[in-house]
């Protein structure tokens, strides 16, 4: 069976979840051969093997940390030449896309980015993508060279699939351009608190129904990496700062997901959030106008529904 190169995104040997999802996808089109670079690379082998990697190629050199992107491209290219795979899969984050793109140019292959699904096809792997703010889905494949595909997080389930995972050293000789961009300082990221309300992809809002207690809603927001919003009633009552008010006399938001808890949804509030892509509401009152707007609504006590939701989300995130 053909081999598929899977680039590993790890931090000091701890493999990040999207890479494991990628192994699941890789197994649909061939035998996954993982490529792990930099400090702690060898420590990734066990976990990669558990999730399907038949081989794990590793390389470590100061260049991977000291210079931006290009050393990794050199290494991935070396792996490509050694393995001659049927496809190269790369996980997020953004650096992954850059590595994938530069490799694709070097090996004269097409590239598909931000795939949300992958399946084997007659003429090669077929990638599914989302277009135009998710109003369209497309299926595409590469017509020249070896498919290079980057995949979005949450595109597949992580599946256990024990395989050999034999570790092999990858020998890399760096190109002249490898040292073009020097990393002169690096500080690991601390969590910076919640995203800005008008820019957040997810907004969790609460209104009169929370009766002054935003804790339950903040916990939900944190589980989703969301911003917190408040209805005018909540702000007027002094339960949350005006800067978080969503509505006619507050901020206007249009996130991917808007979850309204204990908000009736009067026109005053709706004016500030009705263009959200997906709208969810939780409210005790089945007649609340907000339910006319929702994609999914729960009639119930938010103090029971929301904590249960938060716990479920945190469990799934693992």
């Amino acid at each position: 069976m053909a081999e598929v190169l899977v680039y590993v995104d790890h931090v000091d040997g701890a493999v990040r979840k999207p890479t494991l999802e990628l192994l699941t996808l890789a197994r649909r089109i061939g035998e996954p051969v993982a490529v792990a670079l930099g400090a702690g690379a060898a420590d990734t082998a066990a976990e990669l093997a558990e999730h399907g990697a038949t081989r794990v190629l590793t390389a470590d050199a100061p260049e991977f940390a000291d210079y931006l992107v290009v050393p990794k491209v050199d290494a991935l290219q070396a792996a490509y030449e050694a393995v001659q795979p049927a496809a190269v899969l790369v996980p997020p984050p953004a650096e992954g896309k850059e590595i994938a793109a530069r490799l694709a140019v070097r090996i004269k292959s097409g590239i598909i980015t931000d795939a949300v699904d992958l399946e084997a096809g007659e003429e090669g792997p077929v990638a599914t993508q989302s277009a135009f703010a998710a109003s369209y889905t497309t299926k595409s494949r590469i017509t020249q060279g070896t498919p290079v595909i980057t995949v979005k997080p949450n595109s597949a389930a992580v599946e256990a699939a024990p395989a050999a995972g034999a570790v092999e050293a990858l020998s890399v000789s760096f190109s002249p351009g490898a040292t073009g961009t020097k990393v002169t300082a690096r500080t690991p990221r601390e969590s910076s608190g919640r995203p800005e309300l008008t820019e957040a992809a997810i907004v969790v809002s609460a209104g009169r129904g929370v009766n002054g207690d935003f804790a339950v809603v903040e916990a939900l927001a944190d589980s989703l990496g969301a911003a917190v919003g408040a209805s005018r009633a909540a702000v007027d009552a002094g339960w949350y700062p005006h800067a978080h008010q969503v509505g006619q006399t507050g901020k206007s938001v249009s996130p991917q997901l808007y979850i309204a808890s204990g908000i009736s949804g009067a026109i005053q509030h709706r004016a500030g959030m009705q263009t959200s892509k997906t709208i969810v509401a939780i409210n005790k009152d089945a007649e609340a106008p907000i339910f006319d707007l929702v994609d999914y609504g729960v009639v119930g006590d938010l103090f029971e529904v929301v904590p249960q939701l938060t716990e479920e989300i945190n469990t799934r995130k693992g």
């Binding site: 694709a104 004269k108 292959s109 097409g110 590239i111 598909i112 077929v126 277009a131 998710a134 109003s135 369209y136 889905t137 497309t138 299926k139 595409s140 494949r141 590469i142 017509t143 020249q144 060279g145 709208i279 089945a286 339910f291 707007l293 929702v294 994609d295 999914y296 609504g297 729960v298 009639v299 119930g300 006590d301 029971e304 529904v305």
Partner: peptide, 21 residues
């Protein structure tokens, strides 16, 4: 070097589901 084989429109937002807890 890539080819789009098909493009399908996602269905428009229909009236949502409202369930009772």
């Amino acid at each position: 070097w890539t080819k789009v084989d098909e493009a399908a429109e996602r269905p428009a937002r229909t009236a949502g589901t409202v369930v009772t807890d």
